[in-house]
């Protein structure tokens, strides 16, 4: 699986069921040498936007973000997740490292990620339904709609 998709899927798992993510990471890390490559942190990401009319860059505000960067069994992994705790970010980073390195347990990571993917798909389906139900074709008076 694409690592970019994996990150988004694990971020969705982190939002829905962080305990499952932590439990899996704990199990995976048990038999492997692990270390932090960066200090895991809960902090703020400054959200830069490009304005739609002149293309100027500006800061819309900040967003709570947790990041982690680890090495598991020689494989580097990372996670950056909005609204998560550092423990959740570390767990996602361990899963990412295991999946990226094809280490034992990679299949379990993909299975958990699939749950995140399903949650994202359901979220997208609901939004699609909201758009479709409220799509409007206005007509001016005197026109046939």
């Amino acid at each position: 699986m694409d690592r970019i998709d994996l990150a988004a899927d694990l971020a969705a798992v982190a939002a829905e069921s962080p305990a499952d993510l932590a439990a899996l990471a704990h199990r995976l890390a048990a038999g492997l040498p692990v270390r932090h490559l960066g200090v895991p942190q809960e902090g703020l990401a400054l959200l830069t936007m490009e304005d739609g009319v002149c293309g100027d860059r500006f800061h819309l505000g900040e967003a709570a973000l947790a990041v982690a960067h680890v090495e598991v069994g020689g494989s580097a992994g990372g996670a950056a997740i909005l609204g998560a705790t550092t423990a959740t970010a570390v767990a996602a980073a361990v899963c990412d490292a295991v999946a990226a390195g094809g280490l034992p347990g990679a299949e379990a990571v993909h299975a958990l990620a699939a749950r995140g993917r399903a949650a994202r798909a359901e979220r997208d389906r609901r939004r699609a339904q909201m758009r479709a139900a409220t799509r409007v074709d206005f007509a001016e008076l005197g026109e046939s709609a």
Partner: peptide, 20 residues
């Protein structure tokens, strides 16, 4: 909902960290 892109700590490639 804006997918917030943030560099993956290991690869540097932008990944979706969540939505705002």
């Amino acid at each position: 909902f804006l997918p917030l892109r943030w560099p993956h700590p290991a690869t540097g490639q932008e990944v979706e960290a969540g939505e705002v």
